[in-house]
Amino acid sequence: MDIRLTVNGSQHALSVPPETTLLGLLRNQLGHTGAKLGCDVGDCGACTVIVDGKPVNACLMLAGQADGREILTIEGLASREQLHPIQRAFEEHASLQCGFCGPGVILSAKALLDENPDPSRQEVRDGLAGNLCRCTGYTKMIDAVLHAARVMRNETDHSGAKVEG
């Protein structure tokens, strides 16, 4: 079937078999391997991408259902010049170890902060509940998301120093 979609700002027109998932399309057709194939049934969140502003499991969406939609993957988050504030906070808080879950976790965090720029710790936990991590125990991820939120609200810089009004 024929599909048109926008991935990280670039438009694509492709033809894929109907049983192709959005995850398969991103990884195999477009070479965006940031979204990972983990459980393949929507439990682990490693395949999380943002579709029309909402985080979803790309393994649970058919490519055909993404027709006409706008997709953001981890490849579209940083610019050539600098990391996204969430990525930078993850780096500074040493929030990832093996990193397999990272693209999904960071996109879940991005979707959360886009909607709620000042989340409570509990809201961050809830926003990341769909992403499994077997290395870190989550604490440093949650710290990083809260820190990134403060940076994005211009309340602090990445060192944690207060931004002078």
Binding site: T21, G42, M61, L62, G64, Q65
Partner: peptide, 26 residues
């Protein structure tokens, strides 16, 4: 097929997948 959260997981493991998927998600 609506949200797909159950159906796609089933389709991947079912020994007798359907021949036709009718997408009503839009």
């Amino acid at each position: 097929l609506a949200g797909g959260t159950d159906l796609l997981a089933d389709l991947k493991s079912s020994p007798h997948p359907p021949r036709m998927v009718i997408d009503i998600s839009r």
